[in-house]
Amino acid sequence: MPGQINWFELPAADTARARTFYGGLFDWNTTGFDGDYHVIGNGPAGAIAPRENGFTHPRVYFGTEDIDASVKRVHELGGTSEEVQAVPGVGRITHCHDDQGTPFSLFEPASQG
């Protein structure tokens, strides 16, 4: 559903330690996906990912049915966005900032057709 949070990512300097911490706290288990990216299997829809420059706080993804139209609207409202990226077999994403500089991301699922 458009506008709902449908994915999140927790950045970690040491993803193994983060998986141990959140596993102990919430009993989450994870599965590796594409290197050091770990999808949460028995909790909310999200992942533990390597911390990078500019990715030091949890990242939320809002669902959209048309990421191109949403990116256009972000810009019309005074926000910014990075280039839309395809995630094969998953969908399309982009990282944005609203008109006050708050970061968020958009996610358009791959068509089920």
Rank of each mutant, 00 (worst) to 15 (best):
E76I: 00
G24H: 08
G89S: 06
R17A: 15
P103Y: 00
P50T: 09
A69L: 02
H75I: 14
T20M: 13
A110V: 15
G46A: 08
Q4G: 07
K72P: 00
A69G: 06
E52C: 02
W7G: 00
D68P: 03
T30N: 04
D34E: 13
G54A: 07
A45P: 09
V60S: 12
P50G: 11
N6W: 00
I5D: 07
P103S: 13
D14T: 06
E65V: 06
G78Y: 01
P11A: 10
T15L: 01
D99Y: 06
G54T: 09
Q100Y: 07
E52D: 07
D98I: 08
D14G: 10
T56L: 08
I93K: 03
F62N: 06
F21K: 09
V39I: 15
E52N: 11
K72A: 15
A13W: 03
V84I: 15
R73V: 01
R51T: 11
Y61H: 11
N53K: 13
Q4D: 14
D36Y: 08
P2I: 03
D34W: 06
G3V: 08
P50R: 04
G79T: 06
Y22V: 09
I5E: 02
R17T: 14
A49D: 02
N42Y: 05
S105M: 10
E83K: 10
M1I: 10
